[in-house]
Design a protein around this nucleic acid. Structure first.
Lengths: 283, 283
DNA sequence: ATTTATTATCACTTTAAATGATATATAAAT
DNA sequence: ATTTATATATCATTTAAAGTGATAATAAAT
C-alpha cells in the first residue's frame, strides 16, 4: 500500500499539482488514486469538477496515517544521509517579515562556511512554520513569538529594540509620511500603532521592496520609519536620526525552533553552532 | 522506498523465511535487499553463510524507522477495515501456560457470538506478548503478570487460587507421582516448589497433552497435580479431593492488556465487552 | 457562450518486481 | 576430510505494475 501519491494529492488538494510535484503525468495520479480507493473500498476525495479536491471523512482518517508515515520516511532518509556523511540540504523557515533583514547575515555566513550545503528557505506564519517543523519539511525556523508546544524546541537567538528612524528630529510626528516594506507586517503594525496612539494617521505610505530603498527614502527625508536598530550600518547612523523605543511592545525576540527528538544531522548541528557563535551586536 | 521486505527480513533474521511470509521466492528477497542497500549506499545485514542474518549498526537505524512505519501501516489497515464494517480478525496473545485452560471458555464463547470473526492465537512470554501488542501484531493478550508500562493498558480479568488435586487425601505427599501438562510451566513450577519445600522430589512425572487426560490420570490415582480450581467441573469435584492453597504464591491474577491509544475496532470492543460480561466463577 | 482549469478514460510503453533454475557459501554432522 | 543441510547470490525470463500522452468530460469563471 503506497500512500505517497495519496498524501501529496491530499496536501496539494489537486491531482495535477501532485503530478507536478511527483514528476509524473496527471493521468497517472488519477489512476493511482482510483486504484487505492478501489483497493480500500472507500472514497477518499470529493471531486468537484473545476474545484479543489477535498478529503472525505474516510479520506481524512487515512490521511492521518499517510502523514505520519511520510514524516517517518523523510526522517529515515535524513538519518541515512547522515550515515553517508552527506551534507544534506538544510531547510530553514522564516516569517514573512523583515526578520529576514537581520537573519540574512546568518544565512550568508552559513553559506560561506558550508558552501556545499544547499539551503532551502521557506516562508510562512508562525503556525505554518511550526507545522512544517512537525512534518519534518524544514529543519529549523526563526520565529518572533515565544511559543510553547510539546514537540517543539525553542531557543532565544537575539533580542533587540525597535527604533524610530527619520532624517529629522522626533519633536512632532504630524504631517509625516511613513515608509514601510512590502510584505512586512510586524514592524509596520507597530509603527502605525505608535502613531495612532498619538492620534496621528499618516495619509501617505511608501511601500518599498528592499531595505536599501527604504533607508534611501528615509535619508531623503521622505518620512518616518521603524526598524530594529541593528539594521543600520555605522555610516548610516550618521545620516539619520533614530530613537530607540524602550517599551516591551517595541522589543523583538527572535527564537529558533526545531523538532524535539528529531535527528540532529551534522548539517543541522553545524547550523545551530554557527548561530551560537554569531555575534549579533558587534561589528 | 519500500521497507516492508527489509522489515520482515530483519524480523525473521532470514531471507528465506521472509520469502515464505511474503509469499514470494527467496531470490526476489535477496535482489530487493541488495537493491535497497545499493540505493541507500549502506550495508544492512551481516551475512554469514549458513547462519542467521544480523543487522549492521546502520541496518538497525533503518530498522527503527521501518518498524514504526510497519506499525502505522497495520493500524491504517485496521482503521480502514473498521470503516468498511469488516469484522476484522482479532489476534489474541496467550501465555504458554495452562492459562489457556480457563481462557478457552472465553474464546469459545466469543466464537459462538461472532462466528464470522476470525480468531488468531499467538503464544509467547509476557515480554513477547507486550512486544506484539506494541507492534500492533496482536490486539489483546492475557498475561499473568501485573505489569506497568507506558503504552500498555492493563485490566484485571479474574483471579483465582491454585489447588492441589488428587484422588486421595493430602496427609502425606511422599512417594506420590506428579501429573503435569506438557508445555505448561507456571502451575508445574509451583507444584514442584510446593513439594521441594517439603523436601519431596517426585521421581515420576507424567507429562500429558490435555486437561482431560490429566484429570483422568488424577482420578485413576496416578498422582498429584496442581491447577486452578475453576477448571474442575462439578461432577469432577465429587471424584477428586482438592485443597485450595491460600498463600499469595498460589494466587493467580489474569490480566488483559491492549495498546494505549490503539484503534478500538468494533471487533475489539465486542471482545472486551464479552469478557466484562463473562461470569468466571458461576456455572 | 467561451475560456480555463480540473479529473477520467484508454491504448500503449516503460520500468520494476517476481520467478525458477542454478551456483555458491558456510556450519554442523559424520 | 567429506558430506549434508541450510543459507544467500546470480541471471535469463516472465509477469505485473506504474507511467505516458492524447483526448474526453465536467464544472466554474468570465
Amino acid at each position: 500500500m503506497d500512500l505517497k501519491i495519496f498524501y501529496i494529492t491530499a496536501k496539494e488538494r489537486s491531482m495535477s499539482k501532485a503530478a507536478d510535484k511527483l514528476h509524473c503525468v496527471q493521468s497517472n495520479i488519477s489512476a493511482r488514486i482510483k486504484q487505492l480507493e478501489s483497493d480500500l473500498n472507500i472514497v477518499l476525495f470529493d471531486r468537484g469538477g473545476g474545484k479543489k479536491l477535498t478529503l472525505t471523512p474516510n479520506g481524512k482518517i487515512l490521511f492521518q496515517y499517510a502523514e505520519k508515515i511520510a514524516i517517518l520516511e523523510k526522517e529515515a532518509e535524513k538519518a541515512i544521509n547522515n550515515i553517508n556523511g552527506k551534507n544534506s540540504a538544510i531547510a530553514i523557515g522564516l516569517m514573512e517579515t523583515a526578520t529576514a533583514i537581520k537573519l540574512h547575515e546568518i544565512l550568508i555566513s552559513y553559506h560561506k562556511n558550508y558552501p556545499e550545503s544547499k539551503i532551502k528557505i521557506v516562508t510562512g506564519t508562525t503556525e505554518e512554520l511550526v507545522q512544517n517543523i512537525l512534518n519534518s519539511e524544514i529543519d529549523v525556523a526563526f520565529i518572533q513569538d515565544l511559543i510553547e508546544l510539546p514537540n517543539i524546541e525553542l531557543k532565544p537567538i537575539f533580542e533587540e529594540k525597535l527604533a524610530l528612524i527619520s532624517n529629522t528630529n522626533f519633536d512632532n510626528f504630524r504631517n509625516k509620511n511613513i515608509i514601510v516594506l512590502k510584505k512586512e507586517y510586524f514592524y509596520r503594525e507597530r509603527l502605525e500603532n505608535f502613531l495612532n496612539a498619538k492620534n496621528i494617521y499618516p495619509d501617505k505610505v511608501f511601500e518599498l521592496d528592499s531595505l536599501e530603498e527604504l533607508l534611501a527614502y528615509a535619508s531623503a527625508g521622505m518620512g518616518l520609519t521603524m526598524l530594529p536598530l541593528s539594521v543600520l550600518k555605522e555610516n548610516q547612523k550618521n545620516k539619520l536620526n533614530f530613537k530607540i523605543l524602550g517599551d516591551d511592545e517595541y522589543k523583538i525576540g527572535i527564537y529558533l525552533i526545531n523538532k524535539k527528538g528529531g535527528i540532529i544531522t551534522k548539517t543541522l548541528s553545524n547550523f545551530i553552532e554557527l548561530i551560537h557563535n554569531f555575534k549579533f551586536f558587534e561589528k
